[in-house]
Design a protein around this nucleic acid. Structure first.
Lengths: 190, 190
DNA sequence: TTGACACGTCTACAGCGTATACCTATGGTG
DNA sequence: CACCATAGGTATACGCTGTAGACGTGTCAA
């Protein structure tokens, strides 16, 4: 609160004339982001529309690094957030999905729909000293063979991950899975 | 820190003789949870083993409500955390998956593998007063038709969600999708 | 006997969100 | 025109947080 106030050239308490508390301020900030999530064009298949909207959500969230942490701390949904979720469900209903499947799909997309991902390998930095470094590396290889195998033999080995491609991959996996269940006439009650 | 110390009957500063700081304490607490995640029996198909381990992870995390928030704030992975992720990758490598696919799968499972989900509808409580309540409800229905449609027509309508079933549903969607790609000889480079 | 060390305590500080009280320019109303 | 409510700012203070620094002690090895 004090930092925001400083940036505005006022005292922290001045903010409280405009918002009830810190939570409400963050809610407001997030609402502005959520409103800016693209609405996909009409006429798209539901899978395309869903993907487009969620990818846009991720782009928005990524453009504001504070947003992920903020989203994770929200306890209740604001009207804007509800409207966003409503729109995702509407897309699926328009595609003919059952309420049952829509419900499960929303759970499956619960983190994805906010563009949330965790770094897969937030590994500690290797030491700078070459000797120590070599030692650390060989210990690492011995302790975590699968990690090393993945890191050294995957196509992108060495380079950083393409986070957007990874996000899209996982999103497609879910959307395609949901579509498949829909085609099969899936129901949660057997 | 003060609360933990109180619970132990010592001063807050006494804790600093055992951990460097709050972060390290939380890391240690999480490590104990991660170590307690079940290792699936030998001989299972990779899909079964993966599912079992991740479901166990979720059970462990759910048994300790502080754990989800704690996991979300970790910046780097401890050796214990790395070992857990290594074991997930090892399961997939043992199943014959390519390093490429394992890599993408880990990204796709990035939040799932910690049992992380977000409440789908953390909606504000309806007012207690019957008249106000009816009014609020009808406004809600007008503003969020898809939400209401889902909530009223899905099989569990009214009752709370079965979070474990929802979690399993989404996990299966991902694992099945990964398995399908594996069977198709998928590769990220086209 | 001595000194190192493990393991506590006490005090203090800067940062946080925010309750309460107070000030002041502005603009609509009698 | 005088008046006063109101919007929107300030000053001060409180309880909470993590943690730095100095200061005991009881135990054990040399």
């Amino acid at each position: 609160m004090r930092r925001v106030a400083d940036a505005l050239g006022v005292t922290a308490m001045a903010l409280y004339k405009h918002v009830a508390n810190r939570e409400e301020l963050i809610d407001g900030m997030l609402d502005r982001l959520v409103v800016s999530i693209d609405v996909p064009a009409d006429g798209l298949a539901w899978q395309q529309a869903l993907r487009a909207r969620i990818r846009s959500a991720r782009a928005v969230m990524q453009a504001h690094p504070w947003a992920q942490a903020a989203i994770e701390t929200r306890a209740t949904a604001s009207p804007t957030v509800l409207a966003y979720m409503d729109s995702l469900m509407a897309v699926m209903f328009d595609g003919g999905l059952s309420a049952d499947l829509v419900h499960h799909a929303m759970h499956a997309l619960s983190t994805r729909m906010w563009g949330i991902t965790r770094d897969v390998l937030p590994t500690p930095e290797a030491p700078a000293d070459p000797a120590l470094r070599a030692h650390a590396m060989s210990e690492f290889a011995a302790a975590y063979p699968a990690i090393v195998r993945m890191a050294t033999t995957a196509p992108h080995a060495g380079a950083g991950c393409d986070d957007d491609a990874e996000f899209a991959f996982a999103l497609d996996l879910l959307v395609d899975g949901i579509a498949r269940l829909h085609e099969q006439g899936w129901s949660s009650v057997s």
